[in-house]
Design a protein around this nucleic acid. Structure first.
Length: 412
RNA sequence: CGGAGUGUAGUUCAGAUGGCCAGAACGUACGCUUUGGGAGCGUAAGGUCGCCGGUUCAAGUCCGGCCACUCCGACCA
Protein backbone atom coordinates (compact mmCIF):
# COMPACT_ATOMS: atom_id res chain seq x y z
CA UNK A 1 0.00 0.00 0.00
CA UNK A 2 1.24 3.46 -0.85
CA UNK A 3 1.11 5.69 2.18
CA UNK A 4 0.22 8.65 0.00
CA UNK A 5 -2.96 6.87 -1.07
CA UNK A 6 -3.95 5.48 2.31
CA UNK A 7 -7.29 6.75 3.53
CA UNK A 8 -6.94 7.94 7.09
CA UNK A 9 -4.14 10.14 8.34
CA UNK A 10 -2.05 10.33 11.43
CA UNK A 11 -2.56 13.38 13.59
CA UNK A 12 -0.49 14.92 16.34
CA UNK A 13 -3.24 15.52 18.84
CA UNK A 14 -5.89 13.24 20.24
CA UNK A 15 -9.30 14.47 21.43
CA UNK A 16 -8.82 16.04 24.83
CA UNK A 17 -11.23 13.70 26.58
CA UNK A 18 -9.60 10.52 25.31
CA UNK A 19 -8.32 8.87 28.47
CA UNK A 20 -7.49 5.33 27.39
CA UNK A 21 -4.07 5.00 25.74
CA UNK A 22 -5.53 2.61 23.21
CA UNK A 23 -8.09 5.15 22.09
CA UNK A 24 -5.53 7.95 21.80
CA UNK A 25 -3.16 5.85 19.75
CA UNK A 26 -5.77 4.25 17.52
CA UNK A 27 -7.19 7.71 16.88
CA UNK A 28 -3.84 9.39 16.25
CA UNK A 29 -2.60 6.56 14.08
CA UNK A 30 -5.66 6.77 11.85
CA UNK A 31 -7.18 3.39 12.76
CA UNK A 32 -10.58 4.56 14.00
CA UNK A 33 -12.90 7.55 14.19
CA UNK A 34 -15.93 8.04 16.37
CA UNK A 35 -19.35 8.35 14.80
CA UNK A 36 -21.57 8.89 17.84
CA UNK A 37 -20.87 7.80 21.39
CA UNK A 38 -19.85 4.17 21.38
CA UNK A 39 -20.03 3.68 17.62
CA UNK A 40 -16.86 3.73 15.59
CA UNK A 41 -15.66 3.77 12.03
CA UNK A 42 -12.85 1.34 11.38
CA UNK A 43 -10.60 3.09 8.87
CA UNK A 44 -8.52 0.97 6.46
CA UNK A 45 -5.70 0.41 8.97
CA UNK A 46 -8.15 -0.48 11.73
CA UNK A 47 -10.10 -2.79 9.50
CA UNK A 48 -6.94 -4.64 8.47
CA UNK A 49 -6.20 -5.34 12.13
CA UNK A 50 -9.78 -6.34 12.82
CA UNK A 51 -9.72 -8.77 9.89
CA UNK A 52 -6.49 -10.33 11.08
CA UNK A 53 -7.97 -10.86 14.51
CA UNK A 54 -11.01 -12.52 12.93
CA UNK A 55 -8.80 -14.70 10.75
CA UNK A 56 -6.93 -16.06 13.78
CA UNK A 57 -10.19 -16.72 15.58
CA UNK A 58 -11.61 -18.49 12.55
CA UNK A 59 -8.52 -20.67 12.14
CA UNK A 60 -8.66 -21.76 15.75
CA UNK A 61 -12.43 -22.23 15.87
CA UNK A 62 -12.38 -24.32 12.70
CA UNK A 63 -9.47 -26.37 14.03
CA UNK A 64 -11.62 -27.05 17.11
CA UNK A 65 -14.35 -28.41 14.87
CA UNK A 66 -16.68 -25.41 14.95
CA UNK A 67 -18.48 -24.24 11.81
CA UNK A 68 -18.95 -20.67 10.70
CA UNK A 69 -22.38 -19.46 9.56
CA UNK A 70 -24.33 -16.21 9.74
CA UNK A 71 -27.62 -15.18 11.26
CA UNK A 72 -29.72 -12.10 10.50
CA UNK A 73 -28.97 -9.07 12.62
CA UNK A 74 -32.67 -8.30 13.04
CA UNK A 75 -34.10 -10.84 15.43
CA UNK A 76 -37.88 -11.40 15.53
CA UNK A 77 -38.91 -9.94 18.88
CA UNK A 78 -41.14 -12.97 19.45
CA UNK A 79 -38.01 -15.09 19.94
CA UNK A 80 -36.78 -12.86 22.73
CA UNK A 81 -40.22 -12.97 24.28
CA UNK A 82 -40.11 -16.74 24.16
CA UNK A 83 -37.21 -16.71 26.66
CA UNK A 84 -38.45 -13.60 28.47
CA UNK A 85 -35.16 -11.88 27.70
CA UNK A 86 -36.87 -8.73 26.47
CA UNK A 87 -36.90 -7.81 30.15
CA UNK A 88 -33.80 -9.43 31.60
CA UNK A 89 -30.88 -8.32 29.48
CA UNK A 90 -28.52 -5.94 31.21
CA UNK A 91 -28.24 -3.79 28.12
CA UNK A 92 -31.25 -2.17 26.47
CA UNK A 93 -32.45 -4.03 23.44
CA UNK A 94 -32.75 -1.79 20.42
CA UNK A 95 -35.99 -2.33 18.60
CA UNK A 96 -37.11 -1.62 15.07
CA UNK A 97 -40.28 -2.23 13.08
CA UNK A 98 -40.62 -3.12 9.47
CA UNK A 99 -43.25 -1.80 7.06
CA UNK A 100 -45.77 -4.33 8.36
CA UNK A 101 -45.27 -3.20 11.94
CA UNK A 102 -43.52 -6.48 12.73
CA UNK A 103 -41.15 -5.94 15.67
CA UNK A 104 -37.49 -6.87 15.70
CA UNK A 105 -34.62 -6.56 18.12
CA UNK A 106 -31.22 -5.55 16.84
CA UNK A 107 -29.17 -8.51 17.95
CA UNK A 108 -26.96 -7.99 21.00
CA UNK A 109 -26.27 -11.71 21.39
CA UNK A 110 -27.88 -14.55 19.49
CA UNK A 111 -28.80 -17.54 21.67
CA UNK A 112 -32.45 -17.48 20.58
CA UNK A 113 -31.58 -17.16 16.91
CA UNK A 114 -29.22 -20.10 16.96
CA UNK A 115 -31.70 -22.28 18.85
CA UNK A 116 -34.31 -21.20 16.35
CA UNK A 117 -32.30 -22.27 13.33
CA UNK A 118 -31.34 -25.55 14.98
CA UNK A 119 -34.94 -26.48 15.76
CA UNK A 120 -35.85 -26.09 12.11
CA UNK A 121 -34.13 -29.44 11.61
CA UNK A 122 -35.15 -32.85 12.88
CA UNK A 123 -31.95 -33.72 14.70
CA UNK A 124 -30.99 -36.92 16.43
CA UNK A 125 -28.24 -37.80 18.87
CA UNK A 126 -26.21 -38.87 15.83
CA UNK A 127 -26.02 -35.25 14.69
CA UNK A 128 -24.66 -34.11 18.03
CA UNK A 129 -22.57 -32.49 19.27
CA UNK A 130 -21.85 -29.49 17.09
CA UNK A 131 -20.65 -25.97 17.56
CA UNK A 132 -21.74 -23.19 15.22
CA UNK A 133 -20.54 -19.62 15.19
CA UNK A 134 -20.65 -16.29 13.43
CA UNK A 135 -18.94 -12.95 13.21
CA UNK A 136 -21.50 -10.19 13.24
CA UNK A 137 -22.23 -6.71 14.48
CA UNK A 138 -23.85 -6.66 17.88
CA UNK A 139 -25.99 -3.84 19.18
CA UNK A 140 -26.15 -3.03 22.86
CA UNK A 141 -27.69 0.20 23.99
CA UNK A 142 -25.38 0.51 26.98
CA UNK A 143 -26.02 3.11 29.64
CA UNK A 144 -22.57 4.45 29.06
CA UNK A 145 -19.88 3.88 26.48
CA UNK A 146 -16.33 4.36 27.69
CA UNK A 147 -12.65 4.17 26.88
CA UNK A 148 -12.88 4.33 23.08
CA UNK A 149 -13.17 0.76 21.81
CA UNK A 150 -13.19 -0.75 25.28
CA UNK A 151 -16.93 -0.39 25.83
CA UNK A 152 -19.13 0.46 22.89
CA UNK A 153 -22.73 0.22 21.73
CA UNK A 154 -22.12 -1.45 18.41
CA UNK A 155 -19.31 -3.89 17.73
CA UNK A 156 -18.08 -6.91 15.84
CA UNK A 157 -18.29 -10.07 17.90
CA UNK A 158 -17.56 -13.72 17.34
CA UNK A 159 -20.29 -15.68 19.07
CA UNK A 160 -20.63 -19.43 19.01
CA UNK A 161 -23.18 -21.87 20.36
CA UNK A 162 -22.70 -25.53 21.09
CA UNK A 163 -25.41 -28.17 21.11
CA UNK A 164 -24.92 -31.42 22.98
CA UNK A 165 -26.83 -34.45 24.15
CA UNK A 166 -25.84 -34.11 27.79
CA UNK A 167 -23.60 -32.46 30.33
CA UNK A 168 -20.81 -34.99 30.04
CA UNK A 169 -20.47 -34.48 26.33
CA UNK A 170 -20.80 -30.71 26.73
CA UNK A 171 -17.92 -30.53 29.17
CA UNK A 172 -15.55 -31.79 26.50
CA UNK A 173 -16.55 -28.92 24.19
CA UNK A 174 -16.33 -26.44 27.05
CA UNK A 175 -12.83 -27.60 27.85
CA UNK A 176 -11.88 -27.48 24.19
CA UNK A 177 -13.17 -23.93 23.90
CA UNK A 178 -11.22 -22.92 26.97
CA UNK A 179 -8.02 -24.21 25.37
CA UNK A 180 -8.93 -22.72 22.01
CA UNK A 181 -9.56 -19.29 23.51
CA UNK A 182 -6.27 -19.32 25.38
CA UNK A 183 -4.49 -20.17 22.15
CA UNK A 184 -6.34 -17.47 20.21
CA UNK A 185 -5.34 -14.76 22.66
CA UNK A 186 -1.78 -16.02 22.96
CA UNK A 187 -1.41 -15.78 19.19
CA UNK A 188 -2.42 -12.10 19.41
CA UNK A 189 0.11 -11.35 22.09
CA UNK A 190 -2.36 -11.36 24.96
CA UNK A 191 -1.82 -13.19 28.19
CA UNK A 192 -5.21 -14.08 29.63
CA UNK A 193 -6.35 -15.13 33.06
CA UNK A 194 -9.34 -17.48 33.05
CA UNK A 195 -11.68 -16.10 35.69
CA UNK A 196 -14.72 -17.87 37.02
CA UNK A 197 -17.58 -15.41 36.76
CA UNK A 198 -21.25 -14.65 37.04
CA UNK A 199 -23.52 -15.61 34.13
CA UNK A 200 -25.71 -12.53 34.39
CA UNK A 201 -28.52 -12.27 31.90
CA UNK A 202 -27.11 -15.01 29.67
CA UNK A 203 -28.36 -17.68 32.06
CA UNK A 204 -26.82 -21.04 32.92
CA UNK A 205 -24.85 -22.15 35.95
CA UNK A 206 -21.23 -21.22 35.41
CA UNK A 207 -18.97 -19.33 33.04
CA UNK A 208 -15.42 -18.11 32.65
CA UNK A 209 -14.11 -14.78 31.49
CA UNK A 210 -10.82 -14.41 29.64
CA UNK A 211 -9.28 -11.36 31.23
CA UNK A 212 -6.16 -9.43 30.30
CA UNK A 213 -4.72 -7.70 33.31
CA UNK A 214 -4.85 -3.93 32.84
CA UNK A 215 -5.54 -0.87 34.97
CA UNK A 216 -8.13 0.39 32.47
CA UNK A 217 -10.18 -2.79 32.69
CA UNK A 218 -13.58 -3.05 34.29
CA UNK A 219 -13.35 -6.64 35.50
CA UNK A 220 -12.21 -7.12 39.07
CA UNK A 221 -11.08 -10.51 40.16
CA UNK A 222 -9.20 -12.34 42.86
CA UNK A 223 -6.39 -14.63 41.96
CA UNK A 224 -4.27 -17.02 43.93
CA UNK A 225 -0.81 -16.78 42.35
CA UNK A 226 0.11 -20.28 43.51
CA UNK A 227 -2.87 -22.25 42.32
CA UNK A 228 -3.93 -19.96 39.44
CA UNK A 229 -7.47 -20.09 40.83
CA UNK A 230 -9.16 -16.88 39.70
CA UNK A 231 -12.67 -15.72 40.52
CA UNK A 232 -14.61 -12.60 39.71
CA UNK A 233 -15.32 -10.34 42.68
CA UNK A 234 -19.03 -10.58 41.83
CA UNK A 235 -19.20 -14.22 42.87
CA UNK A 236 -16.80 -14.26 45.79
CA UNK A 237 -19.65 -14.59 48.27
CA UNK A 238 -21.19 -17.51 46.46
CA UNK A 239 -17.91 -19.38 46.39
CA UNK A 240 -17.45 -20.22 50.06
CA UNK A 241 -13.75 -19.55 50.16
CA UNK A 242 -11.99 -20.31 53.42
CA UNK A 243 -10.47 -17.27 55.17
CA UNK A 244 -7.12 -18.98 54.86
CA UNK A 245 -7.37 -19.22 51.12
CA UNK A 246 -8.82 -15.76 50.82
CA UNK A 247 -5.71 -14.33 52.45
CA UNK A 248 -3.56 -15.80 49.71
CA UNK A 249 -5.56 -14.16 46.95
CA UNK A 250 -4.77 -10.79 45.45
CA UNK A 251 -7.26 -8.50 43.76
CA UNK A 252 -6.60 -7.44 40.18
CA UNK A 253 -8.23 -5.49 37.40
CA UNK A 254 -8.47 -6.46 33.80
CA UNK A 255 -10.23 -6.26 30.47
CA UNK A 256 -12.63 -9.04 29.59
CA UNK A 257 -11.86 -9.97 26.00
CA UNK A 258 -13.81 -13.19 25.80
CA UNK A 259 -16.05 -15.51 27.72
CA UNK A 260 -17.35 -19.05 27.70
CA UNK A 261 -20.71 -19.97 29.21
CA UNK A 262 -22.36 -23.16 30.24
CA UNK A 263 -26.02 -22.70 29.30
CA UNK A 264 -27.30 -26.18 30.01
CA UNK A 265 -31.02 -26.39 29.32
CA UNK A 266 -31.66 -22.68 29.96
CA UNK A 267 -32.73 -21.96 26.38
CA UNK A 268 -33.76 -25.36 25.14
CA UNK A 269 -36.34 -25.67 27.92
CA UNK A 270 -37.75 -22.19 27.47
CA UNK A 271 -38.01 -22.44 23.72
CA UNK A 272 -40.58 -24.72 22.18
CA UNK A 273 -39.34 -27.75 20.27
CA UNK A 274 -35.61 -27.24 20.97
CA UNK A 275 -35.28 -31.01 21.10
CA UNK A 276 -33.36 -33.88 19.55
CA UNK A 277 -34.27 -37.55 19.38
CA UNK A 278 -32.07 -39.60 21.67
CA UNK A 279 -30.93 -43.19 21.26
CA UNK A 280 -33.93 -44.39 23.28
CA UNK A 281 -36.31 -42.71 20.85
CA UNK A 282 -37.28 -39.97 23.29
CA UNK A 283 -37.15 -36.27 22.49
CA UNK A 284 -34.82 -34.38 24.81
CA UNK A 285 -33.67 -30.78 25.12
CA UNK A 286 -30.23 -29.75 23.89
CA UNK A 287 -27.50 -29.19 26.42
CA UNK A 288 -25.93 -25.91 25.36
CA UNK A 289 -22.99 -23.59 25.77
CA UNK A 290 -22.01 -20.28 24.22
CA UNK A 291 -18.68 -18.57 23.62
CA UNK A 292 -17.97 -14.94 22.72
CA UNK A 293 -15.07 -12.71 21.75
CA UNK A 294 -15.35 -8.96 21.18
CA UNK A 295 -13.15 -8.10 18.21
CA UNK A 296 -12.80 -4.34 18.69
CA UNK A 297 -12.22 -4.68 22.41
CA UNK A 298 -9.55 -7.28 21.74
CA UNK A 299 -7.87 -4.88 19.33
CA UNK A 300 -7.92 -2.08 21.90
CA UNK A 301 -6.60 -4.45 24.55
CA UNK A 302 -3.63 -5.41 22.38
CA UNK A 303 -2.83 -1.71 22.06
CA UNK A 304 -3.20 -1.17 25.81
CA UNK A 305 -0.65 -3.91 26.41
CA UNK A 306 1.66 -3.28 23.46
CA UNK A 307 2.59 0.38 23.13
CA UNK A 308 5.23 2.87 24.18
CA UNK A 309 5.30 6.64 24.30
CA UNK A 310 5.83 6.90 20.56
CA UNK A 311 2.97 4.71 19.50
CA UNK A 312 1.64 1.22 18.99
CA UNK A 313 3.88 -1.87 18.88
CA UNK A 314 1.79 -4.44 17.03
CA UNK A 315 2.47 -8.15 17.38
CA UNK A 316 3.26 -9.56 13.93
CA UNK A 317 0.16 -11.73 13.95
CA UNK A 318 -2.29 -8.83 13.76
CA UNK A 319 -0.23 -5.88 12.53
CA UNK A 320 -1.94 -4.02 9.67
CA UNK A 321 1.32 -4.36 7.69
CA UNK A 322 4.49 -6.26 8.46
CA UNK A 323 6.84 -3.60 7.12
CA UNK A 324 6.74 0.17 6.91
CA UNK A 325 9.10 0.97 4.05
CA UNK A 326 10.28 4.55 4.29
CA UNK A 327 11.75 6.30 1.30
CA UNK A 328 13.90 9.31 2.14
CA UNK A 329 15.54 11.62 -0.42
CA UNK A 330 12.86 10.62 -2.90
CA UNK A 331 13.53 13.67 -5.02
CA UNK A 332 16.68 11.81 -6.03
CA UNK A 333 15.68 9.66 -9.01
CA UNK A 334 18.09 6.87 -8.12
CA UNK A 335 16.84 6.56 -4.56
CA UNK A 336 13.24 6.66 -5.71
CA UNK A 337 13.84 3.86 -8.18
CA UNK A 338 15.61 1.77 -5.55
CA UNK A 339 12.77 2.30 -3.06
CA UNK A 340 10.17 1.28 -5.62
CA UNK A 341 12.16 -1.79 -6.52
CA UNK A 342 12.31 -2.86 -2.89
CA UNK A 343 8.62 -2.20 -2.44
CA UNK A 344 7.94 -4.41 -5.44
CA UNK A 345 10.20 -7.18 -4.14
CA UNK A 346 8.55 -7.12 -0.73
CA UNK A 347 5.12 -7.32 -2.35
CA UNK A 348 6.20 -10.12 -4.69
CA UNK A 349 7.30 -12.06 -1.64
CA UNK A 350 3.94 -11.54 0.07
CA UNK A 351 5.49 -9.42 2.79
CA UNK A 352 2.74 -6.90 3.53
CA UNK A 353 4.22 -3.48 3.16
CA UNK A 354 3.15 0.08 3.73
CA UNK A 355 5.43 2.15 1.51
CA UNK A 356 5.83 5.75 2.65
CA UNK A 357 6.29 7.29 -0.78
CA UNK A 358 5.70 10.90 0.26
CA UNK A 359 8.37 13.05 -1.35
CA UNK A 360 7.57 16.32 0.36
CA UNK A 361 7.59 15.17 3.98
CA UNK A 362 10.53 15.39 6.36
CA UNK A 363 12.32 12.32 7.63
CA UNK A 364 11.27 13.04 11.18
CA UNK A 365 7.63 13.07 10.27
CA UNK A 366 7.91 9.75 8.49
CA UNK A 367 9.70 8.14 11.41
CA UNK A 368 7.11 9.55 13.76
CA UNK A 369 4.28 8.12 11.71
CA UNK A 370 5.98 4.74 11.47
CA UNK A 371 6.38 4.59 15.24
CA UNK A 372 2.79 5.65 15.78
CA UNK A 373 1.30 3.13 13.34
CA UNK A 374 3.56 0.50 14.83
CA UNK A 375 4.34 -2.04 12.12
CA UNK A 376 6.75 -4.70 13.42
CA UNK A 377 9.51 -3.64 10.99
CA UNK A 378 10.71 -0.34 9.62
CA UNK A 379 12.84 -0.40 6.48
CA UNK A 380 14.56 2.77 5.28
CA UNK A 381 15.92 3.52 1.83
CA UNK A 382 17.86 6.75 1.26
CA UNK A 383 20.99 8.24 -0.26
CA UNK A 384 22.91 6.77 2.66
CA UNK A 385 21.76 3.21 2.23
CA UNK A 386 22.97 2.77 -1.33
CA UNK A 387 21.97 -0.63 -2.66
CA UNK A 388 21.15 -1.82 0.86
CA UNK A 389 18.24 -1.28 3.21
CA UNK A 390 18.26 -0.21 6.82
CA UNK A 391 16.05 -2.40 8.96
CA UNK A 392 14.80 -1.75 12.47
CA UNK A 393 12.32 -3.63 14.61
CA UNK A 394 9.63 -1.43 16.11
CA UNK A 395 10.29 -2.81 19.56
CA UNK A 396 14.03 -2.22 19.44
CA UNK A 397 16.34 0.70 18.72
CA UNK A 398 18.96 -1.35 16.91
CA UNK A 399 19.32 -0.85 13.15
CA UNK A 400 20.93 -3.16 10.64
CA UNK A 401 22.03 -2.55 7.09
CA UNK A 402 20.88 -5.46 4.94
CA UNK A 403 20.97 -6.48 1.32
CA UNK A 404 17.62 -6.85 -0.41
CA UNK A 405 17.95 -10.64 -0.28
CA UNK A 406 18.52 -10.49 3.46
CA UNK A 407 15.57 -8.16 3.88
CA UNK A 408 13.27 -10.61 2.14
CA UNK A 409 14.10 -13.21 4.76
CA UNK A 410 12.18 -11.42 7.49
CA UNK A 411 9.25 -13.52 8.53
CA UNK A 412 5.65 -12.89 9.22
C1' C B 1 -30.29 6.57 35.58
C1' G B 2 -27.56 9.73 39.92
C1' G B 3 -23.21 13.15 40.39
C1' A B 4 -19.53 16.41 37.92
C1' G B 5 -18.08 18.82 33.54
C1' U B 6 -17.70 20.36 28.34
C1' G B 7 -19.84 22.30 23.64
C1' U B 8 -16.36 28.60 19.29
C1' A B 9 -12.46 26.36 12.19
C1' G B 10 -10.73 19.35 10.68
C1' U B 11 -7.86 19.22 15.88
C1' U B 12 -6.17 21.77 20.51
C1' C B 13 -7.72 26.21 22.48
C1' A B 14 -8.29 31.92 23.40
C1' G B 15 -12.27 35.28 23.22
C1' A B 16 -13.04 39.64 31.48
C1' U B 17 -17.18 43.63 32.90
C1' G B 18 -22.73 42.18 26.53
C1' G B 19 -20.36 46.56 21.78
C1' C B 20 -17.78 47.26 14.91
C1' C B 21 -15.71 42.72 9.96
C1' A B 22 -14.98 36.16 15.94
C1' G B 23 -8.95 35.05 16.83
C1' A B 24 -4.29 31.86 17.44
C1' A B 25 -1.57 27.44 16.87
C1' C B 26 -1.48 22.80 14.49
C1' G B 27 -3.54 20.70 10.11
C1' U B 28 -5.09 21.62 4.70
C1' A B 29 -4.03 24.09 -0.46
C1' C B 30 -0.46 26.93 -3.41
C1' G B 31 4.70 29.10 -4.05
C1' C B 32 9.86 29.26 -2.61
C1' U B 33 13.48 27.12 0.55
C1' U B 34 14.54 22.46 3.21
C1' U B 35 15.26 16.75 3.63
C1' G B 36 18.02 10.79 8.80
C1' G B 37 13.61 12.19 14.30
C1' G B 38 7.34 15.79 13.49
C1' A B 39 11.92 22.25 9.50
C1' G B 40 11.41 27.79 7.62
C1' C B 41 9.10 32.06 5.09
C1' G B 42 4.92 33.87 2.44
C1' U B 43 -0.17 33.59 0.52
C1' A B 44 -5.04 31.43 0.81
C1' A B 45 -9.25 28.61 1.96
C1' G B 46 -11.93 27.04 6.19
C1' G B 47 -16.90 29.15 11.49
C1' U B 48 -25.39 28.43 11.18
C1' C B 49 -20.04 30.30 18.05
C1' G B 50 -24.50 22.66 19.65
C1' C B 51 -30.12 23.74 18.80
C1' C B 52 -34.66 26.53 20.04
C1' G B 53 -36.67 30.49 22.54
C1' G B 54 -36.18 34.92 25.75
C1' U B 55 -33.94 39.71 27.72
C1' U B 56 -31.53 43.97 25.20
C1' C B 57 -30.53 49.43 20.80
C1' A B 58 -26.90 45.29 20.64
C1' A B 59 -25.84 38.18 22.65
C1' G B 60 -20.22 33.61 21.41
C1' U B 61 -20.93 36.39 26.18
C1' C B 62 -26.94 37.11 30.26
C1' C B 63 -31.67 33.89 31.26
C1' G B 64 -34.81 29.37 30.20
C1' G B 65 -35.54 24.80 27.75
C1' C B 66 -33.59 20.96 24.81
C1' C B 67 -29.64 18.09 22.51
C1' A B 68 -24.82 16.04 22.09
C1' C B 69 -20.28 14.49 24.19
C1' U B 70 -16.70 13.29 28.35
C1' C B 71 -15.48 11.66 33.31
C1' C B 72 -17.05 9.23 38.18
C1' G B 73 -20.82 5.94 40.05
C1' A B 74 -24.61 2.21 39.24
C1' C B 75 -24.96 -1.65 35.48
C1' C B 76 -22.77 -4.83 31.99
C1' A B 77 -18.83 -8.01 27.41
Amino acid sequence: MLYSKLFGKTVKTAPKDAVADSYKLLYQGGFIRESTAGRYFFLPLGQLVQQKIMKIIKEEMDAAGAQEMLSPVLHPLSLWQETNRTKTTGFELMRVKDRNEAEFALGGTAEEMFVDVVRKFQLSYKDLPFNIYQFSTKFRDELRARGGLLRVREFMMKDSYSFDTDEKSFKKIYEKMRETYSRIFTRMGLETVVVESDNGYIGGEYCHEFVVESPVGESRFLVNPNTSLAIHTDIVDKKKITPDERRKMVEKKGIEVGNIFQLGYYYSEKMRDALFTDVDGKRKPFYMGCYGIGIGRTMATVVEVHHDKRGIVWPKSIAPYLVNLIGLDLTDAGVKKQAEKIYQKLSDNKLETLYDDRADVSAGEKFGDADLIGTPYRAVVSKRTGDKVELKKRASSETKLLSIEELLRISC
